[in-house]
Design a binder for these strands. Structure first.
Length: 550
RNA sequence: GGGCACGUAGCUCAAUUGGAUGGAGCGUCGGCCUCCGGAGCCGAAGGUUGUGGGUUCGAAUCCCACCGUGCUCACCA
């Protein structure tokens, strides 16, 4: 529709002999009185062609030629906005569209099959996923869904490292617990992992192997067993949330295949490294960074930057045209160096979208719970799911933009699960399902073939304000999905679905679906089915269930 | 102290990315079930968008300064 109106305005300009470079953009006004689409074109262009905004707007409105069955005559308002209002017929056509496309309604191909990678979670297997990881996981998965719905070829990827210092400490933590089980009087150092799960892993090893592991080094059987059990646990938790990865990428492979060495070499050849005090440095300041950074420590071990750079080079090599990285605010200082290095090696960093989410603050018993993986003091994602359910967990993590700190009051979430906002949406879906069941029991059916099929319906019977408004809301689903995908903002979809549910409830409250007028009944049933489909499709993107009954 | 975010109704957050009269949920107050699901609907109260400047036809949004909160500033990841 926007393209159509744009072409009509260009037509007027052409006939008037005006050439204007200002873009013709439309937006949906907040206020109903301002129509359905509005353009500020006259305001933008007026200066350029030395006309008053209102005069230019008047000329456009007087001379424009548009299809009257779709659009009412435009109006000028305020300083020179041009407002367009669409006909009921146009809005109602969305109902047929939804019913014909069903589960595919809202999908688009604007992504053009672009090879896209979304990297998220990427937590090293040192402990169970926490609620902080939960926000990352749910957000990443939903962004991936949005990209798939808009025609991107998406790979979900989890990056991890099972070799670093963290993992050595993990192995040692298990070994110390194991020795405690054997009766030794040992205290776990503060920098070791204190969680109960460590003790369980040690117990498992003791149960299977008895005392025979006393001489085993921490990074041997202890670390391996811990990694295996913890990773299984992580995957199980993600599975509960409906999250599955296509690729688990091990940082170690970058060493084995020589990719790390290659990066050092490339940076060196570009004159971007130097040696100082036994370490190798990246000359970040030479390419716009604030300070130089160590990439290889004096011990010969690379810092985290090097594998990160190598990994991203691999992403490019594997042909990804859009690379989405999702991580928490604690990584905020790390990515600029990586991007800088990539850029100076000639990679197009415009293809990389770094999405940073703020932390989740957990409130319990009225106070903030400070969390640390190492100390035993954290709430796991699994516990959270146990308390409030998968749908609520996903919904809560998605309903706020990632720039805000998310306050998650556990007591409230537990206690008020019945008043959970996700239920408002799911209730609308279940309610429609119930209406459909009732209608069918009364012998009303809607064919899948549209108006001309055997059980055809005719939307032109719909004339009530609430009917038109619902149809209008349903019709904009695709736009919302596209906007949410383009901005990587799933919460836009939630706001929209709230509006659909609200519009439906209002319609339902004022108008009966199953009545003696059969044609009107069928048209209203079609409207209901369309609303149900839009809600279900929205839920599918969010990863929450669409219950037929609650 | 430097860097990056964020300050919007009592609370948690939106605001179509610079648009017209800043909106929801929870909470508070008041209405609505003879009827397809009341987990719903309708209405009311509640705001100097942290403060002060600037940019322009127009600012919660962009720029500057200050105040406040979080994260971060390793040869840890």
């Amino acid at each position: 529709m926007k393209d159509y109106l744009k072409s009509r305005i260009l037509d007027v300009l052409e006939r008037s002999g005006l050439t204007v470079s200002s873009p013709i953009l439309f937006e949906k006004p907040k206020v109903d009185a301002h129509g359905d689409l509005s353009t500020n074109f006259a305001l933008l262009a007026a200066k350029e062609i030395k006309m008053k905004p209102r005069d230019l707007a008047r000329r456009i409105v007087e001379q424009i030629s548009i299809d009257r069955s779709l659009v009412e005559p435009p109006e000028i308002a305020g300083p020179g906005f041009i407002n367009f209002r669409f006909t009921d017929q146009y809005f109602l056509s969305a109902v047929k569209d939804v019913i014909e496309k069903g589960k595919d309604f809202g999908k688009s191909s604007i992504g053009g099959g672009k090879k896209t990678q979304v990297e998220f979670v990427s937590a090293n297997p040192t402990g169970p996923l926490t609620v902080g990881h939960g926000r990352n996981a749910v957000f990443g998965d939903t962004v991936a869904n949005l990209l798939q719905w808009t025609g991107h070829d998406v790979t979900r990827e989890y990056y991890f490292n099972n070799a670093g210092r963290q993992m050595r400490v993990l192995g040692d933590s298990v070994k110390l617990r194991y020795r405690q089980i054997l009766g030794e009087d040992i205290v776990l150092p503060d920098d070791h992992y204190q969680g109960e799960y460590i003790r369980e892993i040690a117990q498992h090893l003791y149960g299977e192997r008895g005392k025979e592991l006393v001489g085993e080094p921490p990074e041997g059987a202890f670390k391996e067993r811990a990694e295996k059990e913890i990773f299984e646990d992580i995957k199980k938790t993600l599975g509960r949330l409906g999250i599955e990865f296509d690729v688990f990428y091990n940082e170690n492979s970058l060493y084995h295949t020589g990719k790390i060495e290659e990066v050092i070499k490339s940076l060196g050849e570009a004159g971007l490294t130097y040696d100082k005090e036994g370490a190798k440095w990246f000359k970040a300041t030479m390419v716009g960074g604030d300070q130089d950074k160590v990439i290889v420590k004096s011990t010969g071990e690379p810092t985290y930057r090097l594998p990160d750079i190598a990994y991203h080079i691999e992403k490019f090599r594997r042909g990804f045209e859009l690379i989405v990285d999702i991580f928490g605010a604690d990584h905020i200082a790390t990515y600029p160096d990586v991007l800088l290095a990539l850029k100076s090696l000639g990679y197009d960093t415009e293809k990389i979208k770094v999405l940073i989410h703020q932390f989740v603050t957990i409130f319990q018993n009225g106070e903030v719970v400070k969390m640390s993986t190492r100390k035993a003091n954290f709430i796991t994602l699994d516990e959270l799911i146990d308390w409030v359910g998968v749908d609520a967990v996903r919904f809560f993590f998605l309903m706020r933009s990632i720039g805000t700190h998310l306050n998650f009051d556990v007591d409230l979430a537990k206690k008020q699960s019945e008043e959970n906002p996700v239920f408002y949406l799911q209730y609308a879906h279940a309610r429609i399902a119930s209406i459909v069941r009732f209608a069918e029991s009364e012998g009303l059916h809607i064919g899948t073939l549209g108006p001309k099929g055997e059980n055809g319906f005719d939307v032109s019977f719909l004339k009530e304000k609430e009917e038109i408004e619902l149809a209008k809301a349903l019709g904009s689903f695709s736009e919302v999905v596209e906007a949410a995908a383009a901005t990587f903002e799933p919460h836009r979809l939630i706001n929209y679905l709230q509006e659909v549910a609200e519009t439906f409830h209002r319609f339902y409250h004022l108008h009966r679906v199953v009545i003696s007028d059969r044609e009107l009944s069928k048209a209203r049933l079609a409207l209901c089915l369309a609303a149900k489909a839009v809600l279900a499709n929205g839920f599918a993107i969010l990863g929450i269930s669409a219950p037929e009954r609650m």
